[in-house]
Design a protein around this nucleic acid. Structure first.
Lengths: 220, 220
DNA sequence: GATTGTGTTGACCGATCGGTCAATATGCAC
DNA sequence: GTGCATATTGACCGATCGGTCAACACAATC
């Protein structure tokens, strides 16, 4: 019996691919799909351009691979939500997890933003399929919370969009935020302050009593 | 006495320039500065490429002109704010004006977003200068509101960012919003519903009593 | 009718785009 | 050493990039 492990990847290949992906994520996130060039990506990765094509096949394949990787990273968000859950805990976790993810994957978040700005040519199916179902199922549970009197009767879709937008702002608009605050990066104290603010305003604004635990630490 | 009106612009020239600006705004907003091409802009404007250069000088000049036009459009926002103002009225106006502007100038808003995503290479001075002062002055007034007990003691900068991000989301992420909601555009009812939601959550979240007037109409 | 200022535009420039390919190098099994 | 698969990379392809320019159209002035 012959071993068919064609997918056995040497550790060096794996390392090179990660190098390319990191460089590409940076360039695509700044200039979008059209504005990015393989030459710039290759230079940043310290490899000849032909080498990028050898490992990634094409510009489009590289781009799609980065998009998929970012979608996968967001999978952990808002997974353990049930009609019996405590809205304060769940939404607070939602807000803080989103903030942390934005800080952990700033390039990936910006890549996603650029793709949406361009009209989501590569993500249309995902948005109208998986993500739509994801939102619908969470919205249904939040509506049950409202029906149970756990919170105000707000449209759960707008609430989800509110948390998305307000948290993502600090990664995707980092250039604006930095320019206005006058620093290059947000400190841990800033992030904790922002998270606490969003938690306060959104929970209170939805008529949800604040959770008992407060001022949790943000893990980078 | 000789008339020196060199700046007299024929009506046809004005019309052509507006056509070019509209086409360029669309292309730049989708693909960013680097990703946009003069040929595509020219095709969309129905003019030969050389004609674009004749009227606009260069790609960069055209881009900067679009940015400036958009900055100017945002000038009307949050202008009549004083320590004696009613927070509910002012913030409510802020939210709704931002929503209306986003709907009125979707391409311009996306253009701005793309510029920030790219690291604000053309707007860094504006952000760290004018806009920074703008935020600082508004923040100072909001802090006075808090000191007067008109609202909770929240960080005014985070509050301003919250209103910016949550309103802009519906224009810049329109592709995502449409994909999830399953429609191509937001209806007037949607916009009123979203505005009312943001008004409710943000004002209540900041400890501000809701204004008496409710369910105002959104003017397109 | 000649002159002049304002537009218009096809042709062209060097540079860069994404992508291909052949020549070469490298590592490993036998 | 021989053979073979896997990498590596400079050179090159046609297409497109931003920008220039000269030829030309056209209306107004003298």
């Amino acid at each position: 019996m012959t071993v068919v492990s064609t997918s056995h990847e040497s550790p060096s290949r794996e390392r090179i691919e990660q190098t390319i992906l990191a460089a590409a994520e940076q360039v695509f996130s700044q200039h979008g799909y059209r504005g990015a060039s393989l030459q710039v990506i290759a230079d940043r990765a310290g490899l000849p351009k032909a080498n990028i094509l050898y490992y990634m096949g094409s510009k489009q394949a590289l781009y799609v691979r980065l998009l998929n990787r970012m979608m996968f990273r967001w999978n952990e968000v808002l997974e353990d939500i049930t009609p019996e859950s405590d809205p304060a805990t769940v939404l607070s976790d939602f807000i803080r997890t989103k903030m942390v993810l934005g800080q952990r994957y700033p390039q990936g978040s910006k890549l996603f933003a650029a793709e949406i700005l361009a009209g989501a040519p590569f993500l249309n199916d995902y948005l109208a399929g998986e993500l739509r179902d994801w939102v619908a199922s969470r919205a249904a549970i939040i509506r049950q919370w409202s029906a149970q009197g756990k919170m105000d009767d707000v449209d759960p879709r707008w609430l989800i969009f509110l948390i998305w937008s307000s948290t993502q702002h600090y990664t995707e608009y980092s250039a604006q935020v930095s320019g206005i605050l006058g620093r290059d990066t947000l400190s841990d104290d800033d992030l904790e302050s922002i998270s606490a603010f969003l938690e306060h305003v959104i929970l209170k604004g939805c008529g949800i009593p604040q959770p008992v635990v407060k001022a949790r630490r943000l893990e980078k």
